[in-house]
Amino acid sequence: MYLAMHMSDGLVNAPTAAAFGVVAVVGMAVCLAKARADLDDRTAPMAGLVAAFVFAVQMLNFPILPGASGHLLGGALVAILVGPWVGALCIAIVLVVQSLLFADGGVTALGTNITNMALIAVFTGYGVALALRRFALRGKGGLTATAFLAAFLGTIAAALGFVVQYAIGGQGLALGYTLALMLGLHALIGIGEGVITALTVGAVAAARPDLVHLLRGAQRPLELRRPEGSAA
């Protein structure tokens, strides 16, 4: 049996696939333009490694229910480690490699898959992480909790992205049932996504907090003690 993890061709009709192809191309063009500012001697190789890491961990399907599994999407993970613009490009590259080389995820479905995982999951995850940034800067507990929540909600948002695309141009199952099933299963997958994201971000932050995009600009990343004289 093929290991298949993403939408295949034909799940939504051609106009829908084409429309989300345009969304994906425009989104990636914006990311390409914005990513420059986030890339330098150290963050460029880091981003390459983050993409390779996401490819690897996406292969590791974990059981969620009898007969069903889930795997990392990686949206919040890349957003926290390398920022949303570079991170979205990381996920898109992974999806292109998976589709063209491993026949995982359709070719005409790249638009919908990139929209859901490289745009929706990444930017939802980043939005959540940014909203909780002050909490994340307080210490390892705050950072891992932020990573977990960002990953969980990013996964749910990506699942909703599929439901929207299915509502526009899909057929085969009642829409309400599709929505309920997608949300239920991805709430479970989101827990796994959250655990993997929290563990990975925690490990990178412990070794090299300066390489965690979300912590950048903080005076002293993850320093628990406040500078003398500052009010608590």
């Binding site: 298949a4 399907n61 069903a68 599994s69």
Partner: peptide, 10 residues
């Protein structure tokens, strides 16, 4: 890795 279909495939 689990050989079962993922959430979307399910």
């Amino acid at each position: 890795a689990s050989p079962e279909p993922d959430g979307l495939d399910t």
